[in-house]
């Protein structure tokens, strides 16, 4: 990634505190990140640290208390729409089939639905859901629903992808497959993508850069450029370089006190 290029997404000293009844929950504090055009960045961090909140703020869906987000140098105020977003839960509408759920993206934008139909069907088959176009969400497994949601985030060919643990409900095998498929789609279109994931392996395998987040309130603890050639295959996961990256991230989490291993240590 040319470091000379201006960043596409720029998050500057963003803070966000939620109010839960009487208590104040600081989710983000003075957090800054930059994402270059066409870059694939992953966020890894402990559960509840503020990753989802950050994604929402980048998309202009919730407002930061302090700081600002700019995309293309313009401050994000209100929903940014040149965007494909996959939430942590699939958010499919019960009364629409897979295909209709994907095409909601097109309908809401007043784009010609008919022209996007073929593209939507192709996306479905690319994520292994050929023949499921006319199924309703209740007929799909949890993992299938998440894949439909991913298609919905891609169908309108947005400039930016925000993916909040889109593969959270998938088994390890399907997950590998989905990583593979997503990489292929991404290599084809070179979207700027931010992926939130709990899996360190997934983060390293998918990304140009992994941002390791601290426990709440989230800050960037480490910014690790992943220098592995693309297209990456699954073999690469057994390579020493790959494992060096994952090991490094685990150690950072260890230093942050994210793992509670006291019992096991004492026992051993």
């Amino acid at each position: 990634m040319g470091s000379a290029a201006a960043p596409l997404i720029r998050v500057r000293s963003v803070s966000k505190t939620f109010r839960a009844g009487r208590a104040l929950v600081p989710a983000l504090e003075d957090l800054s990140i930059e994402v270059q055009p066409g870059e694939f960045v992953s966020l890894v961090g402990p559960s509840g640290c503020g990753k989802t909140s950050l994604m929402m703020i980048i998309g202009g869906l919730i407002e930061a208390d302090r700081g600002e987000v700019t995309i293309h140098g313009e401050q994000v105020k209100g929903p940014f729409t040149n965007l494909g977003i996959a939430f942590q839960s699939p958010e499919l509408l019960d009364w629409r089939t897979s295909l209709q759920n994907i095409l909601l993206q097109i309908e809401m934008r007043d784009l010609p639905v008919r022209e996007y139909r073929a593209g939507a069907l192709r996306l479905l088959s690319e994520v292994g859901l050929e023949g499921f176009a006319d199924k309703y969400p209740y007929e799909l497994s949890g993992g299938m629903r998440q894949r439909v949601a991913l298609c919905r985030a891609l169908v309108h060919d947005p400039e930016i992808l925000l993916l909040d643990e889109p593969f959270g409900a998938l088994d390890a095998l399907t997950r590998d497959q989905m990583n593979y498929d997503l990489q292929r789609i991404w290599l084809e279109k070179r979207k700027t993508a931010i992926l939130v994931t709990h899996s360190i392996e997934e983060a390293v395998w998918m990304s140009d850069r992994v941002l390791v987040m601290t426990p709440r309130p989230a800050k960037v603890a480490a910014d690790i450029a992943i220098d592995l050639p693309r297209p990456r295959d699954l073999e690469i996961k057994t390579s020493p370089t790959f494992n060096e990256y994952t090991g490094r991230i685990r150690r950072i989490f260890g230093d942050l006190g994210v793992f509670r291993m006291g019992e096991a240590r004492r026992g051993g």
Partner: peptide, 14 residues
């Protein structure tokens, strides 16, 4: 209605 559903369609510019 799920707030996420509303957020989703807002991100679609609806």
């Amino acid at each position: 209605v799920r707030p996420e559903s509303l957020m989703l369609v807002r991100s679609m510019g609806a």
